[in-house]
Simulated assay, not measured.
Amino acid sequence: MAKLRRFIKGDIDAKAPRTEVDGYFTEVHANDGTLLLYLYNFSKAGPKPGATPTQSLHFDRESATAFKKVLEDTFGPL
C-alpha cells in the first residue's frame, strides 16, 4: 500500500493486460484526518473471505488532481 506522492512519465515498454479484474474504491481517513481515496483490486478470481487486495493505491486531493491531469493528457478532456 502506498500513498501516491507524484506522477513521473516512465519509459517502460509495457504490454496490454491479458485479463480484466474489478476495481474497488473506498474513502479512508489518514491519522491526521486527511481524506484519501483508496483504490484496490483482487486477483482475477475475485475477492474471497479474508483475502487481501492484490494491488492498492491511496490518493489524496493533490495526487488525485495530478492523476486527473495525466488521464486528460492521455485521453483528452473527461
Rank of each mutant, 00 (worst) to 15 (best):
L37T: 10
L4K: 04
L71T: 00
L37D: 06
K44H: 10
L39M: 15
N31P: 07
T26D: 13
S56A: 12
D22M: 06
A45W: 02
L39E: 14
I12E: 15
I8Y: 11
L36E: 08
A2E: 15
K69E: 01
A51E: 04
Y40N: 13
L37Q: 13
D11T: 08
D13I: 00
M1C: 08
D32N: 15
G50I: 02
L57W: 10
H58F: 14
N41M: 12
A30C: 12
K15D: 14
N31I: 06
I12N: 14
A14I: 14
L71V: 03
L78V: 07
T52A: 14
T19K: 13
L57V: 09
R6H: 10
A66M: 08
T65N: 10
L57R: 06
S43Q: 11
D32L: 13
P53G: 04
T65R: 08
P77E: 01
A16P: 04
L36I: 05
E72I: 04
P49S: 08
G10I: 05
A64R: 02
A16Q: 09
E27K: 05
F67R: 01
S56M: 04
L71I: 06
A51K: 00
K15P: 03
D73P: 00
P17F: 10
D13V: 02
K44N: 09
K15Y: 09
D13P: 00
E27P: 02
R5L: 15
S56P: 00
Q55S: 14
P47S: 12
I8R: 15
K3G: 11
F59S: 01
T65Y: 03
G46T: 09
F59I: 01
N41D: 15
T19H: 12
T19Y: 11
N31M: 07
A51W: 01
G10Y: 04
K69S: 02
K15N: 14
K3H: 09
L78H: 11
T74Q: 04
D13H: 04
A14L: 15
F42V: 10
S63W: 01
L36Y: 10
G10R: 10
E62D: 05
Y38F: 14
G50K: 02
G46V: 05
D11Y: 02
A45P: 01
Q55H: 15
Y24S: 11
D13M: 03
L4C: 06
T54V: 00
I8F: 11
L39P: 08
D22I: 03
K9F: 04
T74N: 04
